[in-house]
């Protein structure tokens, strides 16, 4: 598997660390318990396009990857600033 780093271009999977769904980009307010439950635990697990977060360890860049869970196609990779 190969993923695009916005800095380094397409790189081998072995250079990345996986975090999880891009839901982590949106922190709920401190006083929103059900918001936090969703944020931490509830995932849509789509068959199709999904967004998740990967760390490109060599260059220290977090990347939001859009990929397809059915076709395994990796569609894009952008820095987190552009992903929210």
């Amino acid at each position: 598997m190969r993923l695009p780093c916005p800095c380094c271009g397409w790189r081998d999977l072995r250079e990345f660390t996986y975090k999880g769904a891009a839901d982590a980009l949106h922190r709920p307010a401190l006083d929103d318990p059900s918001g936090w439950d969703d944020h931490l635990h509830n995932r849509t697990n789509p068959a199709g396009e999904t967004r998740d977060l990967w760390y490109h360890d060599p260059c220290g860049t977090w990347v939001c990857i859009t990929r397809d869970t059915v076709s395994h196609a990796v569609i894009s990779g952008v820095p987190l600033e552009g992903a929210r």
Partner: peptide, 21 residues
């Protein structure tokens, strides 16, 4: 594990060599 053919000269890249940064 990356395509060295595309690397500019002079150029710079971060990567791993058998798990060594």
């Amino acid at each position: 594990p990356f395509d060295l053919r595309n690397m500019a000269s002079p150029g710079s890249a971060r990567s791993v060599l058998d798990h060594l940064p």
